[in-house]
Amino acid sequence: MSTEATDAPLIDVENLSVVIDRDEGVVRPLNGVSFRIDAGQAVGIVGESGCGKTMTSNALLRILPPGAKITSGHIRYRRKLDEQVVDLATIDSGSAEMRQIRGGDISMIFQEPMTAFSPVHTIHNQIAEMIQLHDPMDDQAARRRVVELLDLVGISGPDERADDYAFQLSGGMRQRAMIAMALASKPRLLIADEPTTALDVTVQARVLKLIQRLQRELGLALMLITHDLGVIAHTVEYVYVMYLGQVIEEGPVVEIFDNPAHPYTQALLHSIPSLTNKDKRLEPIEGSVPSAFALPTGCPFHTRCTKQVGDKCKRQMPAHVEVSKGHYASCFIHTEEGS
C-alpha cells in the first residue's frame, strides 16, 4: 500500500467519487475529482454552492457524513511521519494512522469560526488539546505554545485572550484563533474552507493576508476553497474549478482569469463583482445547479450552457484536455479544435 517516493506531490487526488445513501435516494456529491497539490503550493478550489468543495476536503480527512462512501479513486498523500505515500481513500477511517494525519498532517479552517469552536470550552482548552494530541507535552509547555500561536496569528494580549470563549471574541479574532489551532501541530497541508465568507468585509482582506503570509513563512501547502473568485486572485498559484463534483477546468491563476476556457468558468467570472467592472451589470449564471440526486448525462454543464456545440454535449462526457500550457478544460469546444 505504501511506496517510497519523495519527489511525488504532497497530495495527489485521482478520480475520487463519493456517494451518499439516503432514504430519499442516492446522492452523488463527487464524481471523479482529480487534483494535486505540491509541498508548499497554494491551490484554489472554486465553484458554486453545492458543487462538492466541502465534500472533497472532508473526504481527504475521511470525515464524511453518515452514509457517505468513497466508491472509487485514490488520495495519495505523502505523510510527515516517514515520507511514505499512503492512500487516504482506502485507509481505515477509524485507525490511529488516520487520526494522526487529521490535524497533525492536514488541518482545516472552517467557514463559521463561531460554531466551529465549542461554546463551552475556552480557546486555550481547544488549542492545547490539538497540541497535546499530536505532541504529548505537559500543560505548562502546551500553554506556552498556545500563547505563542495566538501571538503568531496577530491576537493582541494572547495570554488573556487564551482564556476567552469563542463568543467573547470578535469574528476576525475567532477566525485567527481557528487558524492558530489549525497550525498548532505543524501540518503540511492547510485546508481553508470558505475562511472569510462569514466575516465582515473589512476583516476579510486581513484574514486572507494572514493566511497567505503564514502559508509562505511556514512553507505550508494551502487548499483554499471558495465560491468567490475574488478571494483566490491574489492568494493562490493554481486554480481548480469544480462543477457537480468534478473538476471541469484547471490552470495557473492568471490563465483562469485572463483566458477562461470552459463556458462555466466564463460565466462564473461574469457573475462576480470586481474592482474594474464595478459599474458593469453582473450576469448571474442562467438556470440552477442540477440536483446531486439526478445528475445530467453527458457534459454536466449542458443544462445551463449557452455555447453548446451539438447533441454530443448531452450524450458524451468531454475529455479533460490541455488548452494551453498547464491549463486544462473539459469542454467539446476545445476537443473540436484539437481534432
Partner: peptide, 22 residues
C-alpha cells in the same frame, strides 16, 4: 450535527473521547 464536532474530528480526536468531551 454541530460544526464543532467536525472541527474536533478534523483535529484527530478519538470519536469516543470526542463525544464525551463535546
Amino acid at each position: 450535527g454541530k460544526p464543532y464536532v467536525t472541527t474536533a474530528l478534523a483535529k484527530g480526536l478519538h470519536p469516543i473521547r470526542l463525544v464525551i468531551k463535546y
